[in-house]
Write a protein that binds this DNA or RNA. Structure first.
Lengths: 340, 340
DNA sequence: CTGTTAGCGCATTCAT
DNA sequence: ATGAATGCGCTAACAG
């Protein structure tokens, strides 16, 4: 597909292909004169080395894979921005795979990758994943993996996460201090690390403030947004004493916001909401929504950075390289101008 | 990197590598017995063909590239969802590149791709792009390109877009019929196809309703969100007679929404806003915001589909294959419950 | 400093 | 129906 290959270029120059190869790679054993001549002609002929020949030869693909549940989520969009930037800096290419939170799809994707297609993997676990055998296999094959945000506890790799426990504790405490006594928790899949950690932070804050934990206030937000909206509305109707909501992910925060609007529950006078959200504008559009914002961009960057260090140094990514970044609780003083 | 290659597998089976190769590809000249034996053992040994050897041999990469301005935008996130789905269906891998709307970055990316790294390209043009020479070169090399959403008029390829002109006309007319007489237009880069088409739709609607066009009401929304917010606020202060806003992209719609809030302009009583937005929840969070929603997911799917047809049939992607999909104007009856 | 040669893993002739 | 030989484009070991 390239117009000209190494041999043709060498022919044009009256040199052997190995000399040209070396000249192109700035080898020390090539005279400056020939190197420059080679590179000039290469540019003229628009020579581009075939990346697959190189990969075949060197077992280096200059490519990483990013495996994600979805993209309809601000966290992941921002994370990819960070990943892609670091990848470009390192001269790497980024393959993207979406699992739609299905364990099966995740397995299928990892299977593609057992062929040595990539030098490393960045992974945010699907909520539908049960075992991690497919990932262990990849590790065994020597493919470095760095997990971010949604990580498996059993798979021993470096991880980049946020302070899920601490920020959830803080969020719940924020509600308690604002006077809430009956606080619902909208959960992501419990099998997900972020799910259980955020739940634990919520429970711990309740306990610290001597509020009994009530499992009936915990709603597992699976399924479509519409479905969640319905179920949240139901919960709020059944338990009218609820005066606070802590939502563990963006879409549940928004759904609960809508549910309150529809039920005519004034926010934040009548009921208060705190939710994880990385949508820059969400907290602005919904001024009464207090948000926990994760440094999504930084998480992507750091995860990629850790991965590249492992790739370049040919060292495994150890759990010890893990990082936990801080989220930010943004409590808006709902001071927006008149609306409606 | 794979544990076992074709030769080793052949050795294990007591066959030649060529037989095994044929058996794996279901060649007709292999007995059913051996074929099944081969495939069983291959599965047991977890044989995965080296994709680069295949690419080198066949000039087929099973990979496409998606080049985008950003990802901090709902349209592109959704589009990728569609693209990735179609790619998976066709057994293809997806490389992603972000240009951050810089023409230079776009050039750099296309340069990578002149090496035959991909079988085809899906492109949403950077607003910073001036010439399309870099893309012409790719076309010349025989790499099929399908443009979507932000397309160049000069580069002759298939495009997948929405009815930018018609929906902008409709949006503007919606405002006029709602009683607006002084309608501001918040524009994306004029050099972008979507920019000029949406502007023209706006102008045509004004003209049809005998409202003179006033260039002072057109604001070119470049730069950061904060910067845009400031400039929009300024415009609204300088021209208090403005009673309608038509925003050509999501982030400008949100910024204008915020600007109105801050200035204490009641929406929609005092001032009405219509904006392009693909954020499912935006129009819900901001019930008084009327939105034009593009079928982003479908656009991604269609663009990918057109590309794969070209790739599979080894035919060029002609402009004749272009598609224009319909957007949807969602005028919310602002019936949300009490808020604040 | 430069050329010759071999081999990465696979698919595909061409033989048998 | 199967095997032997060749080459895709490149790099590196081994000469000189």
């Amino acid at each position: 597909m390239s117009f000209v290959n190494l041999r043709q270029l060498a022919g044009e120059l009256g040199l052997s292909s190995s000399t040209v190869s070396r000249a192109m790679r700035d080898s020390y054993e090539i005279s400056t004169a020939t190197r420059e001549r080679v590179q000039t002609v290469a540019r003229q002929l628009n020579y581009q080395p075939n990346p697959f020949a190189g990969s075949l030869r060197n077992n280096v693909t200059k490519t990483i894979a990013v495996i994600l549940p979805q993209l309809d989520n601000h966290f992941f969009s921002l994370a990819i921005n960070g990943i892609e930037e670091v990848a470009q800096q390192n001269g790497y290419h980024v393959l993207i795979y979406l699992t739609h939170d299905s364990g099966e799809q995740e397995k299928a994707v990892t299977k593609y990758l057992t062929s040595g297609r990539v030098d490393g993997i960045l992974l945010a676990l699907a909520s539908g994943t049960r075992g991690v055998g497919h990932l262990e296999k990849l590790k065994l094959l020597g493919v470095p993996i760095v997990q971010f945000d949604r990580v498996s506890e059993t798979l021993r790799t470096a991880t980049v996460t946020t302070d899920d426990y601490a920020s959830s504790y803080q969020a719940t405490e924020h509600l308690i201090k604002a006077g809430c006594r009956t606080i619902a928790h909208l959960l992501v899949s419990e099998s997900l690390s972020i799910g259980s950690k955020r739940l634990k932070g919520y429970q711990a804050a309740l306990e610290a403030h001597r509020i009994p934990f009530d499992a009936g206030l915990v709603l597992n937000g699976r399924g479509s947004n519409d479905n969640n909206l319905r179920r949240i509305t139901q919960l709020l109707e059944q338990r009218p004493e609820i005066d606070g909501i802590f939502a563990a992910v963006e879409r549940l925060a928004l759904s609960s916001y809508l549910a309150c609007q529809r039920l005519g529950r004034a926010i934040p006078q009548d009921i208060k909401i705190v939710g994880f959200s990385n949508m820059e504008t969400a907290s602005l559009l919904a001024p009464s929504l207090t948000t926990i914002t994760q440094p999504a961009y930084a998480i992507g960057k750091e995860a990629a950075r850790i991965l590249f260090q492992a790739i370049i140094k040919h060292k495994p990514v150890l759990p010890a390289h893990s990082l936990e970044l801080k989220s930010e609780l943004i409590a808006r003083a709902s001071t927006a101008g008149p609306l409606r």
